[in-house]
Lab assay of single mutants.
Amino acid sequence: MTFKLIINGKTLKGETTTEAVDAATAEKVFKQYANDNGLDGEWTYDDATKTFTITE
């Protein structure tokens, strides 16, 4: 399955995708991506669209 991450950061904005077997796996990938890029914010997830959002 394809999951999307929408980034609404103070300095970084955009989106990225990952292929994962489930939402929990995708969340780990996206949280590592956010950590690697210095993002810290509030996370939301929409199961209907398989989309995570981080807002700083």
Rank of each mutant, 00 (worst) to 15 (best):
G41R: 01
Q32C: 04
T51C: 04
N35V: 12
F3C: 01
E27Y: 14
A26W: 01
L12C: 04
A26T: 01
G14R: 12
L12E: 10
D36N: 09
T51W: 03
A48R: 13
G38I: 05
I54T: 02
T11V: 14
N8C: 04
D36Y: 06
G38T: 09
L5C: 04
D22F: 04
D22I: 03
A48S: 12
E42Q: 15
A26Q: 00
L5G: 01
T11H: 14
N37M: 08
K28H: 15
T25V: 06
F52R: 00
I6D: 03
I54G: 01
A48Q: 09
K50T: 06
A23V: 10
D40K: 12
D46M: 08
T25I: 09
K4L: 12
I54F: 13
I6S: 05
E27V: 11
L5W: 02
G9H: 13
E56T: 03
K10V: 15
T53K: 05
T51Q: 05
K10C: 04
D47V: 13
E56I: 06
T55Q: 09
G41N: 01
A26E: 00
Y45H: 02
D36P: 01
T2D: 08
T2E: 10
I6H: 07
G14P: 11
K50V: 04
E27Q: 12
E42S: 13
E15T: 06
Y33R: 02
G14L: 09
K4H: 15
I7P: 01
D22E: 07
V29D: 07
F3S: 00
K28N: 06
V21K: 10
F52Y: 06
G9F: 14
G38N: 14
V21G: 15
N35D: 14
E27T: 06
K13I: 14
K28L: 15
F30I: 02
T51R: 04
F52G: 00
A24W: 13
I6Y: 07
D40T: 12
L39T: 03
T44M: 13
D36G: 08
M1W: 10
D22C: 04
A26Y: 00
E15V: 04
D36A: 06
K28W: 13
I54M: 08
T49Q: 11
T53A: 05
N37V: 09
F52K: 00
D47W: 14
D36T: 09
